[in-house]
Design a binder for these strands. Sequence first.
DNA 1: CCCTTTCTTGAACATCTGTTTTAAAATATC
DNA 2: GATATTTTAAAACAGATGTTCAAGAAAGGG
Lengths: 195, 195
Amino acid sequence: MGRPPAFDEDEVLTGAMHAFRRKGYRGASVRDLEQATGLKMGSIYNSFGDKAGLFDAAFAHYNASFVRGRIDRFAPPSAGLAGLRALFLSVTEEPGGESYGCLITNSAVELGGAEPAPAWVADGLRLLSDTFAERLAAAQARGELRAGLHPAGTAAKLLALYQGILVLVRAGHDKAVLRHLVIDEFANLEARHDR
Amino acid sequence: MGRPPAFDEDEVLTGAMHAFRRKGYRGASVRDLEQATGLKMGSIYNSFGDKAGLFDAAFAHYNASFVRGRIDRFAPPSAGLAGLRALFLSVTEEPGGESYGCLITNSAVELGGAEPAPAWVADGLRLLSDTFAERLAAAQARGELRAGLHPAGTAAKLLALYQGILVLVRAGHDKAVLRHLVIDEFANLEARHDR
DNA sequence: CCCTTTCTTGAACATCTGTTTTAAAATATC
DNA sequence: GATATTTTAAAACAGATGTTCAAGAAAGGG
């Protein structure tokens, strides 16, 4: 009973997610979000409660679809260390001159000073960190990892490196330098067969 | 001729700098800046033109005083690799529960999407990167650096790691993990005397 | 001492913000 | 097909935002 919604929720969340990514939570006005989602103000408030509600939904969508999709595409369990490297390289190859950045990184920085740091930031960071640790542990089991490295500790370092690369990408840093950096770092993680 | 300003410019810029650091460029309202600087609205506009002008001046102050001061204190040329490590560790030891973050990192993320990325971001990043490269080169000359490492490339990696650590600090990440990460990374950079 | 110049103050302004409200349109159930 | 219920649409609202304005205050030069 009652009229069903006329919009596709995935499209709406994807549009909102990109708007928040580009302009930040504060920088994306509700009028901007109208254009990004195709919804009108009333529908946004009717469906998501308020701007923070839409942000929450968009962030959840970002973690569950965008980040996880990127992991599955570039760094599936079978791809090993090379997959992780491909994941890192992929963030330096965003299309176009514009640097959209990562919603996790951007939100951590923008909202990090506020009292209730949104749970989605911690969730996204954990998703990345857990993925890194799992792939590193698998690589270690296969003897692909350099001796003396601990998956958990190395995962923490990779998480910091990943966030830092995203900051530098957003700052317009030279991408060739960033790619070189990633290649070097993963060469250091690999088992040394040449000794 | 004319009445001289009654405020101390360093105090004003320091106050503004902290406000921008905590709340971001957009998040710090001109009313907030009144309280942070002690100046009244009219004086702010009379002295700095507009909010962006105050931000510019505060950012220049941050680079020239805060960042450079931190470098000089923790990582003077004489301190070698251990100085760099101390510099990295210092960002994980900010006082209080609140994480103010780094104006360079925060601005790179917040304003990175905008067309004219402020020059102070690039300047600050270069100041850090140049310092890292110089200290690494000096360490190499003294034989403190692990063989096969290039100062410039390693400096780029350290810059990314530094920015990433600041993101994670702002996200409220466990500081013990971050400290461990720094210690591990610098152990990897040091020449191996135990082989 | 006057008077020009500059700084300070605090109110005023227009615009933009997130949100609410009102009325219309559309569909599912009976 | 009537009714109930929800979505849509667009206007309206209160508050916050960046900025400007006009009047008073403080110093230095004549």
